[in-house]
Amino acid sequence: MDNVVFHVADVHKSFAGLHALSDIDLSVTEGETHAIIGPNGAGKSTLLNVCIGRLKPDSGSVVFDGNTLTGKKPHEINQLGVVRVFQTPEIFPDLTLLENVMVPCLAKRDGSFKLNWFKSFRGEKSIRDHAVETLVDVGLESQVGSHASNLSRGDKRRLELAMGLAQKPKLLLLDEPTAGMARHDTNATIDLLKRIKATGMTKVIIEHDMHVVFSLADRISVLAGGRIIAQGTPDEVKGNPKVVEAYLGEEQV
């Protein structure tokens, strides 16, 4: 396989004897959009939490771009260019949309800490412009100045996405990016993600919506009972009887 940038090697994780993840082995090549699918409770979110440093695996390692992510702190992982978009919107409710997106931009530019207390935040012209651009990309341009707590749930998800995208990540981890969105918003998000894909950003997507998965993914890993039961291109996965049995059978794709 050419140019693997993200590698999850032999990861195990159990909670009080329950095997949430076992023998997870996953390689993502540069520029690839890799989807992880699986029924509820298959361990998808646990896997993402392991990747992002929220959970520590019992064994195994996660490597991105030559750096081992296991054991690193969340902000260190982010500074390496691995950005996660959360499923339940984790935004800054007391800040405006513009500020919500400018803050991650500053993390990208200034690193994990900088004591620039004498500069003007509003005077950060290039950061501001970039943040506005990103908000336009996700379709929130009309609400730039309003407080994030006033947004609808779907709009919060889009803001969450904008906060991730604004950092121009090397690897974007998306946790059900379209959950809770109306159909036309979902389509808009798919279009946006397709455009991002064209820029060559590497992505790992967890998704329930098969329409989203099959319109975006280059390759798919199917997770069931904490194990990867199938891996391959969308067509390969679709035809895999194990997958049909475990998951797709009930969804009628």
Binding site: F92, D94, L95, E99, P104
Partner: peptide, 16 residues
């Protein structure tokens, strides 16, 4: 201000 609003998010945004 962002720390006050959502400290957890700050670390996933890359801030120490």
């Amino acid at each position: 201000k962002a720390i006050k609003s959502n400290q957890n998010r700050m670390s996933y945004t890359g801030f120490n």
